[in-house]
């Protein structure tokens, strides 16, 4: 199978959907003339023109709201945030308008919009540019959230998100854009709400999402050297949430570590742990542990940053603890 970078996969997804449907357009900072801050929209301005590839001023709340308005009357905007750190300025629009208007209007006004861009830490970008924001969006009914970790999922989930009639937040990984992976030729769609086992295993389950899939796989490879068979379940979609897949892996291994890039309190993992204790309590042979970012703003210093981020070693340690090794 052919290989694409994560960046190319996202780009291909958007281009295909823009070719397919004239109501799809891309709006955001630097998406046009600059070819995208992370070059996801390279060549788009030439290909689709300034009406469909729209450079905005640095006004996140404003252009998020303009996109929502356009979606309310039938267009299908893709709003690119240079990073989701900046989307915090647009939270009122996303959470108060995009998430609620369909409901408040008694079902008259669906909002088919995609908000996409990178979340989480890169390298030494310090506190304001290094945070995983999943919780902010998964918390609100009315929003769907996907977190592709591989090029194939990036393409398939983004295409599904663009075709969805609800607001979908697509959380990408800044450090993933250059990652290569196999992506099927032709129409490739990953439906929302379907998790994927990225590595089969039988002793312990590492459940995770987004960029942390790669950390989980590293951890699983290290555990394999100690003859421990770790399963890696990638949720891919946080809302809708593939609860069946979670319960299946719990029933298979009876031991779980949740790995996420965000902070622990009210994090995604907190909800996953709750679901497991509520619906699979009798399957557990050990308490579920979480590996998260240290509960501090991200430091700049390289050594401190490494300490703050979830690492494969911390995941290995957590797996050993739930295995009582």
């Amino acid at each position: 199978m052919r290989e694409l970078t994560y960046r190319e996969a996202l780009s291909e997804a958007m281009a295909e959907e823009m070719e397919r449907d004239e109501s799809v357009f891309l709006m955001g900072e630097e998406v046009g003339v600059y070819n995208g801050a992370y070059k996801v929209s390279r060549g788009f301005l030439d290909r689709f023109g300034p009406q469909r590839v729209v450079d905005t001023p640095i006004s996140e709340a404003g252009f998020a709201g303009i996109g929502i308005g356009a979606a309310m009357v039938g267009l299908r905007p893709i709003i690119e945030f240079m990073t989701f750190n900046f989307a915090i300025l647009a939270l009122d629009q996303i959470l108060n308008t995009a998430a609620k208007t369909y409901y408040m209007s008694g079902g008259q006004i669906p909002i088919p919009i995609v908000f996409r861009g990178p979340t989480g830490a890169a390298l030494q970008l310090a506190a304001q540019h290094s945070q995983a924001v999943e919780t902010q969006y998964t918390h609100s009914p009315g929003i769907k959230v996907v977190t592709p970790g591989t090029p194939a999922d990036a393409k398939g989930l983004l295409k599904a998100a663009i075709r969805d009639d609800d607001p979908v937040v697509v959380l990408e990984g800044e450090l993933l854009y250059n990652v290569k992976g196999e992506v099927p030729e032709g129409e490739h769609i990953v439906p929302l709400g379907v998790a994927e086992v990225k590595r089969e295993g039988s002793d312990v389950s590492i459940i995770t999402h987004g960029k942390m899939v790669h950390v989980a796989l590293q951890a699983a490879a290290r555990l394999a050297k100690d003859q421990i068979s770790a399963e890696v379940l990638d949720l891919r979609s946080l809302r809708p949430l593939d609860v069946d897949a979670i319960l299946t892996t719990v029933a298979k291994t009876n031991r779980v570590v949740y790995l996420e890039e965000g902070w622990p309190l009210a994090g995604v993992g907190a909800e996953i742990v709750n679901i497991i204790q509520e619906e699979a309590f009798d399957e557990l042979d050990a308490p579920v542990l979480r590996v998260t970012q240290a509960d501090v703003p991200m430091p700049y210093a390289k050594n401190l940053e490494q300490l703050a981020k979830p690492s494969a070693q911390r995941v290995v340690d957590a797996c050993n603890r739930v295995l009582y090794r």
Binding site: Y102, G107, P110, P112, P141, K144, D164, D165, D166, P191, L192, G193, V194, S237, R239, P240, L241, D242, V243
Partner: peptide, 9 residues
């Protein structure tokens, strides 16, 4: 509006 077949919303 789109009630997904998969997963819990």
């Amino acid at each position: 509006h789109s009630l997904d077949v998969h997963g819990r919303l």
